[in-house]
């Protein structure tokens, strides 16, 4: 006679699928250069490995790989919309993947966690989409000229000071 038997603590299903889809979508945007695409693919493989085994560190490394790919693509001059989309997809993939691992470890696969995962994934997409959309719109309006960078920096600095004030 024991207490509840150990749960199956592999990552939750919905989050796993969603995170894989998001990281693949992010990689699609990295086709600007071979190097960035390669980094992105390494990132996707690491995220997938982390999701298969429940390794949080692998997911974080994979996210880092994807992000490095995004920075590379940005440096070689990929279109702004694509770079911002890839960044958002990367952050969402990392968020949903680590969330799925956590939920799997805490509640187990047997438990009904669909609603929790869907709400979290949806919130994550919305939170990523709003600044991405606003940023791209601003970028289009400003015309992407040389004056954009200082203006964006100023705005960014103000936002950072306001939101990160302890």
């Amino acid at each position: 006679m024991t207490a509840t038997p150990p749960i199956d603590d592999s990552p939750a299903r919905v989050s796993t699928g969603f995170a894989l889809a998001a990281s693949l979508a992010g990689t699609l945007g990295l086709a600007a250069s071979t190097a960035s695409l390669a980094l992105g693919l390494v990132g996707v493989v690491l995220v997938a490995l982390g999701l298969a085994r429940g390794w949080r560190a692998a997911v974080t490394l994979g996210g880092a790989g994807l992000f490095c790919g995004v920075v590379l693509a940005g440096l070689v001059g990929a279109p702004a919309g694509v770079v911002v989309f890839a960044t958002a997809a990367t952050v969402v993939a990392w968020d949903v993947a680590t969330f799925g691992i956590e939920v799997g470890a805490e509640l187990g696969r047997e438990a009904d966690t669909r609603r929790l995962e869907l709400v979290h994934a949806g919130a994550s997409v919305v939170v990523a989409a709003i600044p991405a959309g606003l940023g791209v719109a601003l970028f289009r309006i400003a015309g992407g000229g040389p004056s954009f960078v200082p203006v964006a920096l100023l705005c960014g600095a103000v936002i950072l000071v306001v939101v990160l004030r302890p």
């Binding site: 920075v71 940005g74 440096l75 770079v83 911002v84 952050v91 968020d95 991405a132 960078v149 964006a152």
Partner: peptide, 24 residues
């Protein structure tokens, strides 16, 4: 992302940084 964008004069990266700011 912002710093890389500024140094390489790539405005797209500065915009990408906004996503990170939103989550923070």
């Amino acid at each position: 992302a912002g710093a890389a964008g500024v140094l390489a004069s790539q405005a797209a990266l500065v915009v990408a940084g906004a996503v990170g700011v939103a989550f923070a």
